[in-house]
Amino acid sequence: MEMINAEIFTLTYGSMVRQLVADYEDVEEVNKQLDKMGFNIGQRLIDEYLAKSKTQRCSDFRETAEKIAKVGFKMFLNTTASVTNWNADGTECSLILEDNPLTDFVELPEQLSALKYSNLLCGVIRGALEMVNMDVECSFVKDMLRGDDVYEMRLKLLSSSTESYPFKDDD
């Protein structure tokens, strides 16, 4: 894949978030907008992932989460995440990021402490998985910008359906 300087990406993202904060005033709205943008990105990004990653179809959600963390993050953010804290059913897990390229050079001021700065990523994951028939919930539970020790996203599978044609052969 063609590469560019990561700092340009980081600063562009930062400048965009600043613009959103200036436009919306309400921090919750900014979080929502970031998630929405991520969702749009995810819907398109999944095609590139499927075309270029050369991975096999995932057999279960555990494998899906691993692929997101090891292959997806590597492809699009040039970093990897680790997958931990599975629940007993294998439908909920945490993605832990130690290095998050979105947040280089970033410091959250006190009055924006409710801002989920990297919320775009949650949207991306949700959008991408929706295109492969998985309904998920994704949100940040730990954020280094808010003083936690790592970035942790909680990923929860709500429902998934196998792919089927909406029409019959003899129609």
Partner: peptide, 15 residues
């Protein structure tokens, strides 16, 4: 550090 151009393109498109 580098990042893939498509990531930037997606972001820029949304922007």
């Amino acid at each position: 550090q580098e990042i893939s151009l498509s990531s930037f393109a997606y972001l820029f498109g949304e922007l």
